[in-house]
Amino acid sequence: MKRREFTAAAVAATIGTLPATRALAQAAGAAMPAVIPPVSADSLRKLLGAQRGKVVVLNLWATWCAPCLREIPDLVRLEQELAPRGVVLIGVSMDEPDDGERVAAFHAKYFPAFNTRLRSERELDAIASVVDPAWNEVLPTTYILAPDGRVVRRVQGTKTHDEFRALIEAALEPATTR
């Protein structure tokens, strides 16, 4: 019973944060994309390569993955908190590649400040293999990449703001002490 109450509260809390996230994005002048930019394995590789020197949080999610949706507001908030220290959040929606309009509508409605792409590869595995050839198709999966591009953590399942923050801080440490 306790768990049920907790879960309900977590869902309610998540849903409660959505308008706030949207308002934050609108206040910040964030663009509301009509389409989600597609990303292939090659373009993801280039995108990640262009972030060298920063800590990248790569989040694999899907509109149908309820646990994914719970953690996205926290990840967006963390990026806003840690961007000055060189943290970049990149999402990749694992929804169907030809479902762009629906995913874009969903994104604009719930997570407009979430910097995400939509996979253009038919195979889920093709995208994840850019950073993790052993990905087991669990969602959400979040990778934390060090400034040199290495994956330093693979996180599966929903994590809280504080749990993510601790993992990202750990990845930031070598960069700040170098």
Partner: peptide, 8 residues
């Protein structure tokens, strides 16, 4: 397996 996610 402890997972707050979608194992599929």
């Amino acid at each position: 397996w402890h997972l707050d996610g979608c194992p599929l």
